[in-house]
Design a binder for these strands. Structure first.
Length: 606
DNA sequence: CCCCCCCC
């Protein structure tokens, strides 16, 4: 039987920080009424037990997957223990390894006794400052001595799993807390963080009142968090806070972050309040300057519209500056579209605004990294830079060097899929999944909306499913047969001696909720029918039976469709119309995963 | 306590 680190629980409660203690989970309880899933654990070291432990939410999947259960023996690879209120301690497990599964252990080891709470209170008075200790191996021995002896972590270790703070003491001699350990459950902390982004001052006015605010992104080597200052705190702090500088910050309010408006890797965000203190940190630190969580371009189509995300790509094409008039205010804006490409052979449009658009130089095809770009569904998928975004040109980071190397060695001539061309051509189907009946409830505006639906083709209209089109590439206009072997295109105002076949399918797609006739055009129809339009057109003329066989071959199969849905007015009547932007056979595993996610959402488990 | 972020 794997041995536990006897006495570790008592040691931690008493303010110690044993390295990677092995403990047993006796029970796990979900904390009720918390907006986010949070687990409280009763831990035992075989001799002592205490229910002061919580799982960092990034470890929740280990509970959901059953990796950790009651009786599991775990090694706490990284944890912090903080004091909350007067006499309570909270231990947060940041990283753990399962040494033995609960099933393997099968029982409580030993007869642990709850570590006495009065002892905790007494201990507390002796060690009021005992809050966070970095793992000994990560910091230099004399980091707290006078003379600016600061522990340095090599920059190359930024992404190493175990991290501690670079600066370990506050100006008043207290401990510096890692950003990663901040929670609303405890309020006595000081962080030492670099400001990586700072907004301008913005005012608002709504039914709840008016005011002004600015926000900033804070970073240390354990994590990042957004902070916002309102009204008086704007006056107090706006001028002193400078991008790229490092500050000690203490005593702000923590609350759950709204992910819709932030891409920072933190479930909480910070609001400055009247007790918040900000002090510049003049020590040299190894706090990194920016932390990206890049999404590769092939993932864009599977993400929700309006998502805020980090991207990096090589600028393969730079468009001219242009000006647009804002619909809401009539103000004129300057913009520039660029195309960025990455190794997934996707390219996407990225729109820069204002000064950033004016000063952008794409002539050397630089690498462009954006933290906090916004995804839109215009023309399939496109990206836009927001005022809260941070754009870096040729950043000195590994991903950028890798991309540039790839681009200069063939990537520049690689064939790519343009995600910002029409509906998006990539294989993955993106957008919100809906039942057909739900999709049809969208009676919205004249703007098309995009969604996904899984459905079965139950009928297909064979007549009028093909037409003879202009042979000029990209025209696609129906030609008029002149009866003399010549075909006339009105759009091109030309007569040709040839034409090309195009497919325009009407298919009735059904799911459990409803059915609907949907248009499937050329490219998607060719994919669906597994043929090419010219061959199919020829077959239609020569062998009607085989033609119909091919058309019937698509019946009664399930597909995931990405749909473009629109209300069209036809003879004064509104009609819901949908066409297929792309389609894929249903992958049962992926489909099941999505259903499980939906069930969890419906039952409040996610 | 904001959460607007533009246009095709």
């Amino acid at each position: 039987m794997e041995s536990l680190t006897t006495g570790a629980i008592a040691n931690i409660v008493d303010g110690g920080h044993p390295e990677k203690p092995v403990v047993q989970i006796l029970t796990m309880k979900r904390i009720p009424n918390s907006s986010q899933e949070r687990w409280r654990l009763l831990l035992s070291d075989g001799k002592w037990s205490n229910s002061f432990a919580m799982l960092a939410t990034q470890l929740n999947p280990k509970v959901d997957s059953g990796d950790i259960t009651n009786n599991s023996i775990i090694r706490m690879d990284r944890y912090v223990c903080n004091t909350v209120q007067e006499n309570k301690k909270v231990l947060i497990i940041l990283d753990l390894s399962v040494i033995m599964t609960g099933a393997e252990v099968g029982k409580k080891i030993g007869t642990p006794v709850t570590y006495d709470s009065s002892k905790i209170a007494a201990q507390q008075q002796e060690q009021p400052q005992q809050q966070y200790k970095a793992p000994a191996s990560k910091v230099a021995p004399n980091m707290s001595s006078a003379g600016g002896n600061v522990a340095r972590i090599p920059l190359a270790q930024h992404n190493a799993p175990a991290k501690g703070p670079c600066v370990t003491k506050t100006p008043s001699g207290g401990n510096v807390h890692p950003i990663e350990s901040l929670t609303p459950y405890q309020n006595r902390w000081t962080i030492c963080a670099r400001v990586t982004n700072k907004s301008g001052i913005r005012t608002w006015s709504n039914s709840r009142g008016e005011g002004k605010l600015f926000s900033m992104d804070l970073l240390d080597e354990t994590g990042e968090i957004r902070a916002t200052a309102f009204n008086n705190e704007v006056d107090k702090f706006y001028d002193m806070i400078e991008v790229d500088k490092v500050y000690f910050i203490s005593s702000a309010t923590l609350k759950t972050a709204n992910k819709q408006y932030s891409n920072l890797n933190n479930e909480y965000e910070m609001s400055f309040n009247r007790t918040t203190e900000v002090t510049p940190c003049h020590e040299q630190t190894a706090i990194p300057t920016m932390q990206f969580n890049f999404v590769s371009l092939d993932q864009l189509e599977s993400l929700q519209k309006d998502a805020i995300l980090d991207v990096i790509g090589v600028c393969k094409e730079t468009h001219d500056l242009s000006h647009v008039i804002m619909k809401s205010t009539g103000k004129e804006l300057t913009k520039r579209d660029i195309q960025i490409v990455d190794t997934t052979a996707r390219e996407v449009r990225l729109t820069l605004w204002g000064t950033q658009a004016e000063t952008f130089d794409g002539s050397q095809q630089p690498v462009v990294a954006v933290k906090g770009a916004k995804l839109s569904d215009f023309n399939g998928s496109s990206l836009s830079v927001l005022s809260s975004s941070c754009v870096q040109i040729n950043p000195d980071i590994q991903e950028a060097h890798m991309l540039k190397g790839w681009f200069d060695n063939g990537g520049n001539v690689a064939e790519t899929v343009n995600l910002s061309g029409k509906g998006g051509q990539a294989g993955s189907v993106g957008g919100t999944f809906k039942l057909i009946a739900e999709a049809k409830q969208n009676t919205g505006t004249d703007q098309p909306e995009y969604c996904c639906a899984k459905g079965c083709i139950v009928m297909v209209r064979k007549e009028n499913s093909m037409y003879t089109a202009c042979p000029r590439d990209g025209c696609n206009k129906k030609v008029v047969d002149q009866g003399n072997g010549m075909y006339r295109c009105e759009k091109c105002d030309q007569t040709y001696d040839t034409f090309q076949w195009r497919i325009m399918l009407q298919a009735c797609v059904a799911d459990i909720s409803d059915s609907q006739w949907i248009s499937i055009f050329q490219d998607q129809a060719e994919q669906l029918l597994n043929t090419n339009a010219n061959e199919l057109g020829a077959l239609r003329e020569t062998n009607k039976d085989d033609f119909e066989k091919i058309m019937d071959g698509i019946l009664f199969k399930n597909y995931n469709f990405k749909l473009r849905c629109k209300i069209e007015t036809y003879n004064g009547e509104n009609r819901w119309k949908a066409s297929v932007m792309n389609l894929n056979p249903v992958d049962p595993q992926e489909h099941s995963r999505r259903l499980i996610t939906e069930i969890k959402q419906l039952t409040g488990q996610a």
